[in-house]
Amino acid sequence: MPRLVDHDQRRAELGEAAIRVILREGLAGVTVRGVAAEAGWSTGSLRHYFGNQYELQAYVVQATTDTLRRRVLPRVQRPRTADSAVEGVATIVEEMLPLDAGRREEYALWAAVVEWERQHPPEGGSASWNDQRALHRQCVAALRGHETAREPGQAALPHPDAEVELWAALLHTFVDGLASQLMNTPGQVSAADAAQLLRSLLRAVPPAGSSPSAGSSPVGP
């Protein structure tokens, strides 16, 4: 009797092998030959699942996105106790920064997703970018004293408070830049520096009811 093959399991194994390749070589290393070698397969066996490199990379990028969500979302969503709203929000945002080995690995995976989206712009825009903007929107809304959205779809929509949208954009840009510095020039920016800079920006977010953009300058300690 022929042995039954679990094709979903085999595709998952290929996805895991490809992620290991990404961490060593980036998205460019995700080739049929390279992933087959990593998984211990022949190229012919891998082509049974993916007809060309585009199909392989598209599958791997989706698998990578799913992996990042499984890793990051539980950390972001876990209950927190903090002395202040700024501190509570800071501990959430720090989950997006490459402050340790695990989060540096996640950043490398995220960079591969971004590179794929740059090469193949998705309809409706970048899902990873939209996910991050929704998170930053929620964080700023909390700092402004608003209730956070109960449904993910609601968090993806522009907030009725224009200041939330402005500061969510500033926070998103800031976090991207800070993450890049932590990865690319780690000798110049320490984890402690990053923590201080992040909290400085968050303290500058003006509470609801104040004059627009009347918070303290986001520059400086």
Rank of each mutant, 00 (worst) to 15 (best):
M1N: 04
P2T: 11
P2E: 01
A12P: 07
E13M: 09
G15I: 02
E16A: 15
E16Y: 11
R20Q: 10
L23H: 05
R24M: 01
G29L: 12
V30S: 06
T31K: 01
V35S: 01
G40F: 08
S42K: 08
L46T: 04
Y49A: 07
G51L: 07
N52K: 03
L56T: 01
Q57K: 06
Q57E: 12
V60I: 10
V61G: 00
V61I: 08
T64A: 07
T64R: 01
T64M: 10
T67H: 11
L68V: 14
R70M: 15
V72E: 09
V72I: 12
R75G: 03
T81G: 05
A82V: 06
D83P: 05
S84A: 04
V89G: 00
T91C: 01
T91P: 02
E94F: 08
M96F: 10
L97E: 08
A101K: 01
G102H: 09
R103T: 03
E105I: 03
E105F: 13
E106A: 08
Y107G: 02
Y107S: 13
W110H: 10
A111N: 06
E115N: 11
E117T: 03
E123N: 05
S128C: 07
S128H: 07
W129M: 09
Q132K: 12
H136E: 12
R137T: 14
A141C: 04
A141Y: 09
A141V: 04
L143I: 10
R144E: 08
R144H: 06
R144M: 13
G145S: 09
H146Q: 02
E147N: 15
T148G: 13
T148Y: 11
T148E: 14
R150Y: 01
P160K: 00
D161A: 00
V164N: 11
V164R: 04
E165S: 00
L166T: 04
A169F: 13
H172D: 14
H172S: 12
A179Q: 05
Q181R: 15
Q181I: 01
L182S: 04
M183L: 09
M183N: 07
N184P: 00
T185S: 06
T185V: 15
S190D: 08
A195M: 08
Q196P: 02
Q196V: 12
L197M: 11
L198T: 00
L201W: 03
R203L: 00
A204P: 09
A204Q: 08
P206S: 00
P207C: 05
G209T: 10
P212T: 11
P212W: 12
A214Q: 05
S216H: 14
S216N: 10
S217R: 02
G220A: 05
